[in-house]
Design a protein around this nucleic acid. Sequence first.
DNA 1: TTATCTGAAGTCGTATACGATTTTTACTAC
DNA 2: GTAGTAAAAATCGTATACGACTTCAGATAA
Lengths: 257, 257
Amino acid sequence: MSAAEPAAPALTPFGRLVAEHRRSLGSGADERLSTDDIVQLLQQAIIRGVFAPGRALRQDDLALELGVSKIPVREALRTLEAYGFVELPHNRGAVVKELTLAQLREAFDLRQMVEPLLMRAAVARLSEAALKEAAELVERMAQERNAWTFSRLNSRFHQILYEAADMPLSMQILTMLQGYIQRMSFMQLSMMGFNRSSNEDHRHILDACRRGDADAAARHVADHVSGIKTVVMGLYAQLHGDTGADELHSKPPRHAN
Amino acid sequence: MSAAEPAAPALTPFGRLVAEHRRSLGSGADERLSTDDIVQLLQQAIIRGVFAPGRALRQDDLALELGVSKIPVREALRTLEAYGFVELPHNRGAVVKELTLAQLREAFDLRQMVEPLLMRAAVARLSEAALKEAAELVERMAQERNAWTFSRLNSRFHQILYEAADMPLSMQILTMLQGYIQRMSFMQLSMMGFNRSSNEDHRHILDACRRGDADAAARHVADHVSGIKTVVMGLYAQLHGDTGADELHSKPPRHAN
DNA sequence: TTATCTGAAGTCGTATACGATTTTTACTAC
DNA sequence: GTAGTAAAAATCGTATACGACTTCAGATAA
């Protein structure tokens, strides 16, 4: 508890994320962040591009900005390592993992396998409450103009529908895959352009769920993922020149932060 | 260096695993175990049933038996939590996760999707060295009489073949799934009974790989996984009394397919 | 007896401290 | 200027210490 804390906002991009997270926690703003909070914060920072691929994450810095010691930071990094967000070379700290076009394609391929299966299994078991919440999310997404918030609502929409399937392994895998896909920062941009068409898909999916038509729901989900894949992969090709044959685009940024 | 160390063998089952691991490390036996070593040791202990589902893992005890403080133990537990081996309820330590029949089935279903895909993609890229090592593993498996060692060789056989596909996400998922499946202790037993038939499958797979016949290789892998699934699920039903139809038996047990 | 309370013991979670390793800097030799 | 080296600084990994939380045992009251 230093007097310098309020006097030095020290507004790094990550610091802003931390402040935002603290606010969203609601309660006493001076409480210590849990390791799980830190996992979420770091994950979000990586997904949103605050920590770009290849960036070294120094434990003491993170600890300072999070207001904890480095022990919970290190534990959070272990979790993120397991989820494929960072690498932890021994005695050399943590580095944000690189992403390649091949991995992006692979993540989509796997989603195309897993999601229709989840949807099909879920339809017969969907509760009224779940359908209601899903419908609300569709409406909120239609209004949403912030890419990150839209992305969150979108994830939640699918999660709500899928978790009725009661297939925890598939859900765990899907969560991991979505993390990979969301990490493509352009994804968030493309999301916005894709907004309208995506919302249409969502309505189709929701309708099929309401009717209890598992086949149709699974088909709509497959089309949905396929559509997103096309847009995102296309955008990737556009942004990275052409075929995306290169993978190491890392030139050192002049100024960090 | 305390005088008590050599005087107290303290032969808990886990202690034996630790000693075994130390021996397999070869070099100076008095080196401190790394966090990664601890992850492997705990994972192995859970898979082999030394730590049964539901068991509470106390950090101080583990640290003592591993010869480290509880900090690396906690980090290892975080990794294992992410992989689905333990749960970490806040302020209540670590507990070995329970396994259900539904999860076993789900793990097999996912393997049946992922493995043929990996095999198909790998065939064209397999190196001579990989084929040679795979062949050696088949031979060693045929001789092997220890269930755990057999299981390790088996995992390695598939890993060698699949990693040529260069699909790291699928590999990561598959590793997780195999962890789940291996946790069924009876799995190791059934492995032995299944030994002969399994080795036949392996030879077929390897032959197809050598011929560069991707379709055949993928088909053999699918059959292989399917065969194991049948045996393991059947054994589960046998050991757990009845059909295991409690709540998730989606297929009628009247007649076998 | 059964239930509730209270204090003690046990366990967890993390801040601090420190040795070990890596990286950077400054210097020298070529 | 480049290469090589040695000292200094930065960073990591973990043992220790301690406050916080949970659990359990014994006591009291109904």
